[in-house]
Design a binder for these strands. Sequence first.
DNA 1: TCGCCTGCCACTTTTGAAGCGA
DNA 2: ATCGCTTCAAAAGTGGCAGGCG
Length: 304
Amino acid sequence: MYHPRELYPSLGTGYRLGPPQPVSDSSFPPALAEGYRYPDLDTTKLDCFLSGIEAAPRTLAAPPPLPPLPPALGTEPSPPAPEALHSLPGVSLSLENQELWKEFNSVGTEMIITKAGRRMFPACRVSVSGLDPEARYLFLLDVVPVDGARYRWQGRRWEPSGKAEPRLPDRVYIHPDSPATGAHWMRQPVSFHRVKLTNSTLDPHGHLILHSMHKYQPRVHLVRAAQLCSQHWGGVASFRFPETMFISVTAYQNPRITQLKIAANPFAKGFRENGRNCKRWAPFIHSLIHVTNPYLPPMCQAQF
DNA sequence: TCGCCTGCCACTTTTGAAGCGA
DNA sequence: ATCGCTTCAAAAGTGGCAGGCG
């Protein structure tokens, strides 16, 4: 089993896919884009790997068009079915923790981004079917801007407030099991819980770089590859789940999102009852238990 | 003044090494 | 020598808060 982190240890867990995109915006100097080339890499292996990706359909380099957006996060009734860009017939993907994502999406999902990198919660966790059990595949995840707007929390909802910052160079997280056989991927759900988001444009760790206060859509890509360095790629399928859309922030804006994160994320247990901030949140969380509350997923209630 | 970002804090979970016995 | 299990400390991951910056 090959692991990208073993082959390219300096990459960390994620890195750009392909050479830097031409940057037309003068506010993003070429020198900064060049910084993402990772000069420490074994360039022979990397070129081999990336040339294969580049030889595949251009769906990875150029994001597919997105459907019309809902008016604002937290107001849409129910997200449409996941959309896929396919050259892998018969392959389908389903979002494992869809109910949790829907709970967050009904409020307006926010993801914290930090200089050091912050994990996504909820994480993208998918089940795949229809793969050739013997063939090898790569699982990738990236995050793309949804629109050209910057957002601002207006006390009760997110609203556009001006033009988006210039788009940053795309980075892609490669699942550490890649490449693995179809049988491996279909054996159990594939989790991207180690993906980290950062707002540091000079991030050296390979985290996915985002602008704060912008709306993003995660995408999952499946690439068939006979070998890690194969020039012959058997196809690509790209999936996205509208309920995983989120707004990146450096501090939570919507208090209901904070409550949901504390209730659902095991690492935030310290902020529940008996935690150091229990005085602040305990009364509210208690109300969530005793009153049917649409903002608290069933799996969270069971933990109290 | 305001909105946003950063570093630190206390807390919990996860991870991996060490020790032990079968 | 190997394997499986348990224990424990270190590392990593949380949101809150105060203060800084533009």
